[in-house]
Amino acid sequence: MSKFLEASDLAILTGRKVKSKQIEVLRKMGIAFFVNACGKPVVAIAAVEGPKRSASVPIWTPPR
């Protein structure tokens, strides 16, 4: 499994196929990405899904 979104996933997420337009939309959405040597935006899956939580790590809740 890849750690990055596939080109088709990126097109669905942004609604754009042209890389410059994808970059524009990603910036507007506030999604972290970098541009590779080919000029294509690369988005880590974690940037969209959020960090994975371990079942052994309890979720913090404020005291009452």
Rank of each mutant, 00 (worst) to 15 (best):
K40C: 07
V42W: 13
P63Y: 03
I59M: 13
K3H: 01
G15E: 11
E49H: 03
V48G: 01
F34D: 10
A32M: 08
R53S: 10
R64F: 01
K3T: 02
P41Y: 02
T61Q: 15
A37W: 06
K28Q: 14
L26I: 06
S2R: 10
G39S: 03
A47V: 01
T61F: 10
A46C: 09
K28D: 15
R64E: 11
N36G: 01
E49L: 10
F34N: 05
A44T: 00
I45P: 00
A37N: 06
I12G: 00
C38K: 11
P63V: 04
Q22L: 07
V35L: 01
A11D: 13
W60Q: 07
S8D: 12
M1C: 09
V42S: 04
G15I: 03
D9G: 00
G15L: 05
K40Q: 14
K17L: 13
I31H: 04
D9K: 02
A32N: 02
K3C: 09
S56L: 14
I12T: 07
A37M: 07
V43G: 00
V25H: 04
P51Q: 12
M1D: 08
A55F: 02
P62V: 03
G39M: 01
K52Q: 15
K52R: 12
G15F: 01
I31G: 08
A7R: 11
M1N: 09
I45E: 13
R16I: 12
R64I: 07
F4P: 00
I45D: 02
E24M: 09
M1W: 07
V25D: 06
V35G: 04
K19L: 10
A11G: 08
P58N: 04
L10A: 10
M29T: 00
N36F: 07
E24R: 04
P51Y: 04
P51F: 05
G50F: 01
I12N: 00
S56R: 15
V25T: 12
I12A: 05
A46T: 14
G15C: 11
R27V: 08
K3W: 10
I59A: 09
I23A: 15
